[in-house]
Simulated scan of single mutants.
Amino acid sequence: MTLSVPSARAVDLRLEPVDDVLSRVERSLQVRIDRDTVIRKRRSVGGRTDRNTWVRTERRSFERVETQGSNGPETAAVLRGVAMPRWQTGLTWRDENEPVMWRADETELVNEPPVGQAALVIEDPRLPDTWWAGLDALAAQHTPRVATPDTQSMTQELVDLTIRQVFPEVPDLTADEWTPAHADLTWANVLGPELCIIDWEDWGMAPRGLDAATLWGNALAVPALADRVWAERRPDLESRSGRLMALFFCAKIMGPYAHESDPRLEPARKQAARLVT
Rank of each mutant, 00 (worst) to 15 (best):
G209V: 03
A231R: 15
D176I: 13
H182P: 05
E232C: 08
S239L: 12
G192T: 09
A272S: 12
D184V: 11
W230T: 13
M254F: 07
V190F: 00
D262E: 11
I253E: 00
A188G: 05
A272Q: 05
L275G: 12
N189S: 08
R264L: 09
R208L: 08
L195C: 11
R240K: 12
A224L: 02
F249P: 02
A268I: 09
R228M: 12
G209N: 08
G204V: 11
A258K: 12
A212W: 03
W230C: 04
L237C: 10
E232N: 10
E201T: 14
R234I: 05
W187T: 06
P267I: 11
K252N: 11
A206R: 05
L247Y: 02
F249N: 00
Q271E: 13
A219E: 01
L191D: 04
L265N: 00
R234P: 03
S261T: 15
L247G: 03
K270F: 11
D227Y: 02
H182K: 11
P267T: 07
P235K: 10
A219N: 01
L265V: 13
E194D: 15
N218M: 09
M205P: 01
A258D: 08
E232D: 13
L191S: 07
E238F: 02
R243K: 15
Q271F: 13
G242Y: 01
W187Y: 07
W216K: 05
F248T: 04
S241D: 02
L247F: 06
H182E: 10
A272N: 10
I197L: 12
W187P: 01
W230M: 12
L220T: 14
P207T: 04
L220S: 07
W178P: 01
K270C: 08
A221R: 00
G192A: 09
G209P: 15
A212M: 11
A206D: 05
D211T: 12
G217Y: 07
G217Q: 06
T179M: 14
